[in-house]
Design a protein around this nucleic acid. Structure first.
Length: 293
DNA sequence: TACGGACCTTTC
DNA sequence: AAAGGTCCGT
């Protein structure tokens, strides 16, 4: 086990904000200023201290820094996106991070729990799935189960655990990935081009464009991926595509939003997703305040 | 192609 | 009712 301290201000790293933002689902807060998180092979026990965080972990400081992408911040990126957007300064300084989970399999199956669902239930479902894996040291949760293990889970067992109509998709996706080469297939997608990974993932039953882009962005670290969810769509139509305000998000429009941000930002397009997602939260809050029904 | 509806269940 | 969608019908 390693112990290290990260010297960083709250404006640069807001842990609550990061770990409850729906990018990763295996972190939880234990009282004021204490968190426990699992990512891939490692767990992290984190405590807020003066001027930063104290961390105990099976991983290294480099692992922690990579997970929270501490090498760049929203402040670096926001000017490129559009410094004139509403709330851009507040969003940039909010300590929000583009997370970088280390295990593609874990991320893929976490997002398979996410469609038409809310954060609290997604988290509880991901944790329930993780319980099929091997326990980690010190009783800190479980390593995410292998593809073989997931493939062997009965649909009825997941139904009983409350996974609903997502139940068949989970062992189904594991079998589909195993047929294509398993972990090495995922590793190939990660090291290959964005378009290939996107097009491969949407072949899997239960993975559409949005999940495919989430997996490309977070699990494969593909900055070209722009997941367009309901919040992103609201922000995009408000800021960039006013003619589509209030219309349904069709496949063509999904493509247009991503292409627009990719053409402006290249590999930073994925950051724009995070920024706009956050911007819509901030705007939604102020709309509630200024326009009560 | 684009639109509507169903889908499991929980949480607000 | 709505939730960080996807799939399957027209």
């Amino acid at each position: 086990m390693n112990e290290f301290e990260i010297a960083i201000s709250a404006k640069e790293l807001d842990l609550d904000h990061c770990v409850m933002s729906g990018q990763v689902f295996r972190w939880s807060r234990h009282g004021e200023g204490r968190w426990l998180g699992i990512d891939g092979e490692h767990w992290y026990a984190v405590e807020k201290i003066d001027g930063g965080f104290a961390v105990q972990s099976t991983g290294t400081e480099a692992d922690f820094r990579a997970h929270f992408r501490l090498e760049e911040t929203l402040v670096d990126v926001v000017a490129e996106i559009d410094a004139s957007l509403p709330e851009s300064a507040a969003v940039a300084a909010s300590g929000f991070r583009l997370m970088r989970p280390s295990c593609p399999r874990e991320t893929l199956f976490a997002f398979l729990c996410s469609p038409n669902n809310h954060l609290l239930r997604i988290t509880s479902m991901v944790n329930a799935l993780a319980e099929f894996g091997e326990p980690m040291s010190r009783g800190h949760g479980h390593r995410f189960p292998s593809l073989e293990r997931i493939a062997g889970i009965e649909e009825s067992e997941l139904r009983a655990k409350g996974f609903g109509y997502r139940s068949p998709r989970i062992p189904g996706a594991a079998r589909a990935i195993l047929e294509r080469g398993g972990e090495s297939y995922l590793a190939e997608l990660k090291s290959g081009p964005y378009e290939t990974a996107f097009n491969e993932l949407i072949k899997i039953d239960g993975i559409g464009p949005k999940l495919s882009d989430c997996i490309c962005l977070f699990a494969f670290d593909q900055g070209l991926a722009v997941p367009v969810d309901t919040h992103m769509w609201q922000a995009a139509t408000r800021n960039f595509f006013p003619q589509w305000h209030g219309t349904a998000l069709t496949e063509l429009r999904y493509r247009a939003v991503g292409d627009y941000l990719r053409s402006r930002l290249g590999e930073r397009a994925g950051w724009a997703h995070l920024y706009l997602y956050r911007e819509n939260q901030v705007m939604a809050r102020s709309r509630k305040y200024t326009e009560p029904k």
